[in-house]
């Protein structure tokens, strides 16, 4: 017995990996030890980084793709899928990450963008996840080949307010499309600056054609459960785990809250006695230049 007509890097294969991550937590890690802690806590995947967003914010300057040696160290440390970030528009960083065997590339506003144009993601075998603040942005990224979407939130703040806002906007815009007459869809596509064929698809199905995770500012089990109840498929936790008092316990608690997000008693139980959450920033006091969510277009 054998296989025939084998194809790699198809939409189904790329989007399919994101389907497998649903209901799970993807955690930012900066070394092999953190990656092993995340895996032991039940993370479905880790994001290999040079620095977590809170530290990128603190250090300032240009934030770039992680050192390939660091990415490799993390790939070698765990059996779960490994993601890594490239700068927006930096297709060579993406080529490098693909060659390392990274399982998903996050073309991320957390790093410093190099171009107004995002990467043409159809050119890659490896799948991409991209951030979005609203439906138009999500559909532009999907139009460029993104196989997974996440809310942008405001990374490295420990403040979930922006992720909530972005999820609500996305849900509302999807509902609006489903109520429209077909004759209205071209104007709707123009208004949200999205590819027409994707607007039509959403109007018919009432949902994004790819998995949508929450990201940006998730710091507690309750934050994760909130985003799940708002309709996200899973959560990314950036600085929230390893900037807290007890990363292993907090990581496990967020994993359990993401599974049992509808069960307040279980979320209460896992939230009890977790120690200090990361300190957190108020998003409305950030200078415009410090707002990572406004990067990309």
């Amino acid at each position: 017995m054998a296989t025939s007509n084998t194809e790699r890097g198809t939409d189904l294969v790329k989007r399919g990996l994101a389907e497998m991550l649903k209901g799970g937590v993807i955690m930012d890690v900066v070394n092999a030890d953190q990656a092993r802690i995340a895996e032991a806590a039940g993370a479905v995947s880790v994001m290999a980084l040079e620095r977590v967003p809170a530290d990128i914010r603190a250090v300032g300057g240009v934030a770039r793709m992680a050192d390939p040696a660091k990415v490799q160290e993390i790939i070698d440390a765990v059996s779960i899928p490994v993601m890594a970030k490239s700068r927006i528009g930096h297709f060579v960083e993406a080529q490098i990450l693909q060659s390392l065997g990274v399982d998903y590339i996050d073309e991320s506003e957390v790093l410093t963008p190099v171009d107004d144009n995002h990467i043409d993601k159809w050119n890659f075998t490896v799948p991409f996840v991209c951030g979005a603040k609203d439906l138009g942005e999500a559909l532009r990224r999907i139009g460029e080949g993104a196989a997974m979407i996440r809310t942008k939130g405001e990374p490295g703040t420990g403040n979930v307010v922006e992720a909530v806002k972005h999820m609500r906007i996305m849900n509302r815009q999807i509902r609006e499309l489903t109520l429209m007459d077909d004759n209205e869809l071209m104007n709707a596509a123009k208004d949200i600056r999205a590819p027409y064929h994707l607007v039509r698809e959403i109007a018919e199905t009432g949902k994004l054609p790819v998995v949508n995770f929450a990201a940006g500012g998730i710091a507690t089990p309750a934050d994760a459960a909130l985003m799940m109840q708002l309709g996200c498929d899973g959560v990314f936790v950036g600085s929230g785990v390893f900037k807290s008092g007890d990363p292993a316990e907090r990581a496990r608690a967020i994993v359990e809250a993401t599974t049992f997000y509808q069960d307040a008693a279980k979320v209460a139980k896992v939230s009890a006695g977790l120690g200090e959450a990361m300190v957190g920033l108020n998003v409305d006091t950030l200078a415009p230049a410090d707002r990572m969510q406004d990067r990309g277009n």
Partner: peptide
Amino acid sequence: RQVDSFEADMQ
């Protein structure tokens, strides 16, 4: 790894 994931026909 993921870049080796695939779809195919199979007996």
